[in-house]
């Protein structure tokens, strides 16, 4: 899990600044994610957690600062490359909304594979295995609206992990769930990430969820709060 100080970070953000309209979401935030590590980004609402995740995942370009992934400047890559990266190397899980409401759970999970060129049959077969792994095989034929929140989120995890990404970005993945469903989703995420060596960037305001991570970065007013103790 902890690769120590010597390891080169897989993903690193340096002095990020980002303004949305009149609000400054990030002012000089830096963070790094090592390969296979689970990192929690915590902070109060509006502290810039989600914007930091968006910048690191290449969804949003920062106004200033740099994002480096595998030696490449993510903030300078063209949109097409970024899309490709998000499809292959990255997986994302949000509080809700990443599942297409009209597709069944199985097709939702199969979608990233089909986008990568797999045939529908192959994609569905692999999607089925992933649903099994997250304990929602029985819901394969249901649409997101017909599942419980926990089942939908586990389906989202399956969709994020089905392509074998190097990093999974999870933005309040348990935000809409009760504590038991939240525990099931987090346990499934942590186990799979550990088994496959996937790094996870976990944005949450919930300390119990953050405790699933190896390390914590705390944000306040768009910058990282220096902590006396390091894990």
């Amino acid at each position: 899990m902890n690769n120590g100080e010597n390891a080169v970070p897989l993903l690193a953000a340096r002095d990020l600044a980002k303004t949305h309209g009149r609000t400054q979401a990030l002012r000089g935030a830096s963070a790094e994610l090592r390969a296979g590590e689970i990192l929690a980004v915590t902070g109060a609402s509006g502290s810039g957690k989600s914007t930091l995740l968006h910048c690191l995942a290449g969804i949003v370009r920062p106004d200033a600062g740099s994002v480096t992934y595998g030696g490449e400047r993510l903030d300078r890559l063209p949109e097409k490359r970024l899309s490709g990266l998000r499809r292959g190397d990255f997986g994302v899980v949000f509080q809700f909304g990443q599942l297409i409401p009209e597709l069944t759970a199985l097709d939702n999970v199969a979608l990233p594979l089909m986008l990568a060129g797999s045939s529908r049959g192959d994609a569905q077969a692999r999607a089925g295995e992933w649903l099994e792994r997250f304990g929602v095989r029985g819901q394969a034929g249901l649409r997101p609206g017909e599942m419980s929140g926990g089942q939908a989120q586990r389906t989202s995890l399956a969709r994020a992990l089905v392509t074998g990404p190097k990093v999974v970005f999870a933005d309040e993945p348990t935000g809409a769930l009760d504590s038991l469903a939240s525990e099931q989703v987090m346990t499934a995420l942590v186990h799979t990430a550990r088994d496959s060596g996937t790094a996870v960037l976990l944005v949450t305001h919930d300390a119990q969820v953050a405790a699933y991570a190896d390390r914590e970065v705390r944000l306040s007013d768009g910058a990282v709060v220096p902590t006396g103790v390091t894990a």
């Binding site: 346990t187 942590v190 953050a210 405790a211 699933y212 709060v225 902590t227 103790v229 894990a231």
Partner: peptide, 25 residues
């Protein structure tokens, strides 16, 4: 403030340990 920050870090560390126990296979 510094005390609360350090206490928080200690609490988080203990919570991570307990969560690790909980999620151990």
């Amino acid at each position: 403030e510094a005390y609360l920050k350090a206490q928080r870090a200690a609490h988080m560390k203990r919570m991570r340990e307990l969560t690790a126990v909980k999620t151990a296979k």
